[in-house]
C-alpha cells in the first residue's frame, strides 16, 4: 500500500474554560489514502469539527490547544511547520468547506474576488488569468452562467450555489485532501444530494482524498469508503462502510444505525439513543458510553476499554467486542 495522503497520529485537543479543561479530542488516529473518502461520524459535541480544524492548526488559541499528536500530509508533519510554511499548505494542499455557506463566504466581496484570492496567493496568477480560472472553476462545480455569477456577491446566490462556490474555492489549487465539515446540513434536501454527488464526482476526477464529517449515515453509506465513529472525543470504532453497516461492533455504532433505520422507516418518529452525551466536565470514570449503554457490564464502569484491532483496518473500543471476532 502506498503512503497515505493523510496520517493522523494520537491527536489530542483541549479547550481551557472557567469550569476546567475540555478534552475535545483525545488520542485520535486515522489515515486516508489517495482517492479515498473517510467519514467521521458521531453525535453533536463528539469532537468532529475540532479534529478537522486541528488538522490545519486552526484551533483558536486561547482557549484551544493541540496538546499532542502528529498530522502527516504526504509524509510531512504539519505540526512541525512554521506559521508561514503552514499557510502554504492551507488552501493549497489541504482545503476545507464548512456547514453554512452563507456564513463562510465574506458578504462584502464578489465571488470572483474570494476564489481569485486563493489563485493569486498560491499560484501567483495574474488578474486576467484569475478571471478565466474562476469562471472555469465555477463551471466545474456546475454553477450556471459562471461569468455573471463571478461578478456577484454571496447574497445574490442560493444556499446550494454558495456551497458550490465554496467547493470551487476549496478546489482552486487541486488540494490533496478536502475536508468537508457537514457540507450539506444547512441545505435543502433536494440540493443536498446534488452537492454530495458533486463532491464525489470531483474526488474521482481529481483523485484527492476526502474527510467527510456528517451526522447522516445515509450520506456515509452512499459516499464513504471507510468510517471512523467518534464518541466524547475518542474514536470508538473504525471499519469499511460495508463492515460498519453489516457488522457494527460497538454498541454506540449500533445505536446510531438503529436510530437511522427508525428515521427511514417512519420520518416523524425520531428514535434516538437514550440518554445524552456526558458533560465534558463529568466524564464517567470507565467507558464514556457506559451510562447510556444497554449492554454495559460491571467492568465498563471501572476502566476505559482500549482501542483494539479486531481485523486489519478494523478497530473497536469496547470490552464486549474484544472477544467477538472469534465467536
Amino acid at each position: 500500500m502506498s503512503a497515505p495522503v493523510l496520517d493522523v497520529r494520537s491527536l489530542s485537543v483541549e479547550f481551557e474554560s472557567t469550569l476546567g479543561t475540555v478534552h475535545a479530542v483525545r488520542d485520535l488516529s486515522f489515515s486516508i489514502g489517495e482517492g479515498e473518502t473517510l467519514a467521521l461520524v458521531g453525535e453533536s459535541g463528539s469532537g468532529k469539527s475540532t479534529a478537522a480544524m486541528a488538522l490545519l492548526r486552526l484551533i483558536p488559541n486561547p482557549p484551544g490547544r493541540i496538546s499532542s499528536g502528529a498530522v502527516l500530509l504526504s509524509g510531512r508533519d504539519l505540526m512541525a511547520l512554521s506559521e508561514a510554511d503552514l499557510r502554504g499548505v492551507r488552501g493549497r494542499e489541504m482545503a476545507m468547506i464548512f456547514q453554512d455557506p452563507m456564513m463562510a463566504l465574506n458578504p462584502v466581496y464578489t465571488i470572483e474576488r474570494q476564489i481569485g484570492e486563493v489563485l493569486r496567493l498560491h499560484l501567483g496568477l495574474s488578474k486576467s488569468e484569475i478571471l478565466a480560472e474562476v469562471v472555469e472553476l465555477l463551471r466545474l462545480v456546475g454553477v450556471p452562467a459562471p461569468e455573471e455569477r463571478a461578478r456577484q456577491y454571496p447574497h445574490n446566490l442560493s444556499g446550494g450555489m454558495r456551497q458550490r462556490v465554496m467547493i470551487a474555492m476549496a478546489l482552486a489549487c487541486r488540494p490533496r485532501l478536502l475536508i468537508a465539515d457537514e457540507p450539506t446540513t444547512a441545505l435543502d434536501v433536494t440540493v443536498q444530494a446534488q452537492v454530495l454527488d458533486l463532491i464525489h464526482g470531483l474526488k474521482e476526477k481529481l483523485g484527492m482524498a476526502v474527510l467527510l464529517i456528517t451526522h447522516d449515515l445515509g450520506i456515509v453509506a452512499e459516499t464513504a469508503n471507510r468510517v471512523v465513529v467518534m464518541y466524547a472525543g475518542r474514536k470508538v470504532e473504525e471499519g469499511t462502510v460495508g463492515e460498519i453497516f453489516a457488522d457494527p461492533r460497538h454498541p454506540y455504532t449500533r445505536g446510531l444505525l438503529g436510530a437511522a433505520k427508525w428515521e427511514e422507516a417512519d420520518g416523524d418518529l425520531l428514535r434516538e439513543i437514550p440518554g445524552t452525551v456526558p458533560s465534558p466536565f463529568e466524564m464517567p470514570s470507565g467507558c464514556s458510553f457506559a451510562p447510556r449503554c444497554a449492554e454495559a457490564i460491571p467492568l465498563c464502569r471501572g476502566a476505559m476499554p482500549e482501542l483494539k484491532d479486531v481485523a486489519p483496518g478494523r478497530q473497536v473500543r469496547c470490552f464486549l467486542a474484544e472477544g467477538r471476532g472469534h465467536g
Binding site: L58, V89, R90, G91, R92, A104, L105, M169
Partner: peptide, 25 residues
C-alpha cells in the same frame, strides 16, 4: 464570524485578513 475561519483556511496571513476581510466588514 465564520468567513474569517474560511480566510485562514485559505492560507491568508493574519495581516491580510485583518486589513481586508475583517476591516471591510
Amino acid at each position: 464570524l465564520d468567513f474569517i475561519v474560511t480566510a485562514r483556511a485559505k492560507g491568508l496571513s493574519e495581516g491580510v485578513i485583518a486589513w481586508t476581510h475583517a476591516m471591510r466588514n
